Simulated scan of single mutants.
Amino acid sequence: MSKLRSLVPSTHSLFVFEAAARTLSFKRAALELNVTQPSVSLTIKTMEKHCRVTLFKRDNRGVRLTEAGSELYDQVRAGFRRIEQTLEEIGEQGTKYLSFAASTTMAAHWLAPQVYHFQQEHPDIRLKIVVTDRDVEPDNEIDVTIWIRNRDFNRPNTWFISDEVIFPVCSPAYLAAHRQLHTIEDLIHHQLIHSSDAYRKRMSWSEWIELVGGDPSHITRDIVFTDYQLAYQAALLGEGVALGWSFTNEFHLANGSLIRPLPHQVETGRAFFLVANDRIGESDKTKKLLEWVLAQSMAHRS
């Protein structure tokens, strides 16, 4: 049993208190609650007696909150609003969100920097970003997601976004404080940031160096992050050189917070794909979201 039931005379008294505190009028609270003014006054008196505290100051000009009343009102108002939001979300007539599932890195470094543009263009659409450490199948809970698959991947409700291109990235500050990078062999003199995700296979430094014609035998894995997002963040903070993906690095390369210290890159033969659930044909809002993602990523396909 909730302790709250013993701290107030009734749950109804909280609704009466909230209305009276918000309107600062027992009369207006009574009209709003469809009860009489004496009923509101009695409920407040009963609540004050039960709680052993004065909630309202009464005088000829009306009522105003005491310090204790103001403190209680702030908490009651916040609590009521949280309950309202939850009921709206779970109710059949409540706010409907489009759910976009993405990796931590995709959500933080591609979606987050520009998703507000989508909201400005489509204020009627509510978007929920679902961060996941593995690929999820679009279903009743997820409307849209992004996968990396072989370049010839094909299935209904799937759109090609961008080829997977991988290259080294670091912050300008890191490069300014360390010896220059001119060749693949120079990497041995730099702090390489490694990552190893449990559920998403990402190319390692050794694989990348071998593919661009270098010798990976002298590469050491001094520090390994088990989430690529942490490796990416370390690169932004100037801790070393990380491998970057063209699509998810787009924003930071454009604003200069990351740079490419070497021109070498690997085109893996895989690609990013936008994947939607089977309900796309039923929702104009989902179509607008898909069109927006494709428009934002158009430069990668040109």
Rank of each mutant, 00 (worst) to 15 (best):
K3F: 11
T11H: 01
V16L: 10
R22C: 01
T23F: 13
L24V: 10
S25G: 04
F26N: 06
K27N: 08
A29F: 03
L33W: 02
Q37C: 10
S39L: 05
R52Y: 00
V53Y: 01
L55C: 05
R58V: 15
N60S: 15
G62W: 04
S70Y: 05
D74L: 13
A78F: 10
T86H: 15
L87C: 15
E88T: 12
E92Q: 15
E92S: 06
L98E: 11
F100E: 01
F100L: 11
S103W: 04
L111D: 05
P113I: 03
Y116P: 00
F118I: 03
P123K: 14
D124W: 00
I125Y: 08
V136I: 15
E137I: 09
D139L: 01
N140A: 10
W147D: 05
W147C: 01
I148N: 06
T158K: 13
V165R: 14
C170L: 07
S171F: 11
P172C: 13
A173S: 13
L175P: 00
E185Y: 03
L187E: 00
L187M: 06
H194M: 06
M203K: 10
W205I: 06
E207M: 05
I209R: 02
L211Y: 00
G214A: 06
S217I: 07
H218M: 03
H218L: 13
H218A: 04
T220N: 15
D222E: 15
Q233I: 11
L236W: 13
L236A: 12
L236C: 15
V241K: 05
L243D: 09
G244D: 11
W245A: 07
F247N: 01
T248F: 05
T248D: 00
E250W: 01
E250R: 02
F251P: 03
H252G: 06
N255C: 10
N255Y: 04
S257Y: 06
S257K: 02
L258E: 09
L262N: 08
E267Q: 14
G269F: 12
F272I: 10
F273C: 08
N277R: 04
N277A: 14
R279E: 13
I280G: 08
G281A: 11
K285E: 15
K288A: 11
L294K: 13
Q296C: 10
H300M: 08
H300V: 01
